[in-house]
Simulated assay, not measured.
Amino acid sequence: MSITRLASAACVCAILLTGCSAPKKVPYLVDAETIPRESLAAVSTVKDPIFVQGDLLNICIYASDPTAVAQFNKGQYLTPEGAISKTSNNTNTAGTNTTSLTDYYLVDAEGNIDYPVIGRIHIAGKTKEQLAREIKDAIYPRYIKIEPTIDIRLMNFRVTILGQVKSPGVYQSDNERMNILEALAKAGDLDIRGDRENVLLYRTNADGTREVHRLNLHDKSLLLSPYFNLQQNDFIYITPNRSAAASAWQMHQGWTTAISVVSGLASIAALVIGIINLNK
């Protein structure tokens, strides 16, 4: 058999082997159906976000008598006639009312918000339930005799996704929660160069500490991981796989070689010009 035929046969075998092994590298959560139901049920899928510095909160207090709680709702006040009025923080664009950011509470660098009547409240590290209970205990029954209902919404739950995805960017959730798969779906999924076994998660906690974790999208145990569900301001980086890294290195080497050749030719040209000038 000629060398050419041997080379062709080797190429065909390599392609076939690659074709057989590739599908095992592409699916997410391989064999996830084998995880016992008891294990999945033991994992909490819904968690209230923990407030951190920079969060924007929308806090509304309701009662059977709206005038009793108006003073505790940002942007509302009672007129001399006893009616509820709202400050003009809303803007109207093309006939649509848009809520201004000044209608929300911004958690400052110390983890506090300034609340009407109550004053400063430290909320960093607390959940919605804990904050609602604290506000309720502060106003009832001291200021109002009707037990209120308190609704708290986190308005800027968002994660950042960069690296080997089709649409990197900052993505926001309207329901205060997002898991790693939902985040990747928003970014258009990984591209062909993304390393699905080496996804980096950077997280800043409410106390200022930072965590870095590596996630494997092929591994079914990701569903049981405490990092499957994301927290606000999480940063996800999709690292390049080996082929992407190799391509980048080859390109770098190509540019280095080209620059070296051009530099060498320039030096030779300068030398030749110098010799010609000496002979004149």
Results as ranks from 00 to 15, higher is better:
233 N>L: 01
84 I>R: 02
252 H>V: 07
203 R>M: 01
113 I>L: 08
59 I>W: 07
267 S>H: 05
184 L>E: 11
165 V>H: 06
208 G>F: 03
161 I>G: 09
253 Q>A: 12
88 S>Q: 14
120 R>N: 11
51 F>E: 12
40 L>M: 13
175 N>W: 10
58 N>P: 01
128 K>C: 04
223 L>E: 00
119 G>V: 02
249 W>L: 14
222 L>F: 02
159 V>W: 10
63 A>R: 03
172 Q>E: 13
86 K>E: 15
84 I>T: 15
95 G>N: 05
19 G>Q: 05
140 Y>Q: 08
19 G>W: 04
161 I>L: 14
278 L>T: 04
238 I>S: 01
208 G>Y: 06
27 P>G: 05
107 V>Q: 15
129 E>D: 06
50 I>W: 00
60 C>E: 14
72 F>T: 13
251 M>Y: 07
223 L>W: 00
261 V>S: 03
77 Y>Q: 09
126 K>M: 14
53 Q>C: 10
36 P>H: 11
210 R>E: 12
32 A>N: 04
158 R>A: 15
50 I>H: 00
73 N>F: 03
35 I>G: 03
97 N>D: 14
107 V>S: 13
50 I>Q: 05
67 T>A: 09
43 V>M: 03
248 A>G: 05
54 G>F: 14
86 K>H: 06
219 D>F: 00
15 I>K: 01
113 I>Q: 09
180 I>D: 10
9 A>H: 05
142 R>L: 14
162 L>Q: 13
55 D>Q: 04
249 W>N: 08
1 M>F: 10
240 P>M: 01
109 A>Q: 11
257 T>N: 10
131 L>D: 09
99 T>K: 10
203 R>I: 05
97 N>Q: 13
195 D>L: 06
33 E>P: 03
275 I>H: 01
22 A>L: 13
205 N>R: 07
43 V>W: 01
12 V>M: 12
162 L>M: 08
213 H>P: 05
68 A>S: 14
177 R>D: 12
58 N>M: 02
126 K>R: 11
160 T>K: 10
172 Q>H: 06
63 A>Y: 07
189 D>H: 13
85 S>W: 00
266 A>W: 01
52 V>G: 13
209 T>Q: 07
17 L>C: 05
31 D>F: 04
115 Y>I: 12
183 A>C: 06
41 A>R: 13
156 N>R: 08
239 T>E: 15
93 T>H: 10
44 S>R: 07
128 K>W: 07
104 Y>E: 02
172 Q>G: 12
220 K>D: 00
264 G>I: 07
175 N>Q: 13
67 T>I: 15
126 K>C: 03
175 N>L: 09
166 K>Q: 13
31 D>T: 04
3 I>C: 00
142 R>P: 05
204 T>L: 09
69 V>T: 11
47 K>P: 01
270 A>F: 11
270 A>T: 14
50 I>D: 00
61 I>V: 07
178 M>E: 10
195 D>C: 02
263 S>Y: 04
160 T>H: 10
230 L>T: 04
154 L>F: 04
119 G>W: 03
247 S>C: 01
263 S>W: 00
141 P>T: 08
98 T>S: 15
48 D>A: 06
71 Q>V: 11
270 A>R: 12
258 A>G: 11
159 V>Y: 12
30 V>K: 15
266 A>L: 11
271 L>Q: 04
4 T>P: 00
273 I>C: 00
148 P>N: 04
232 Q>F: 02
115 Y>S: 12
31 D>S: 08
70 A>H: 06
228 F>R: 02
219 D>C: 01
204 T>W: 03
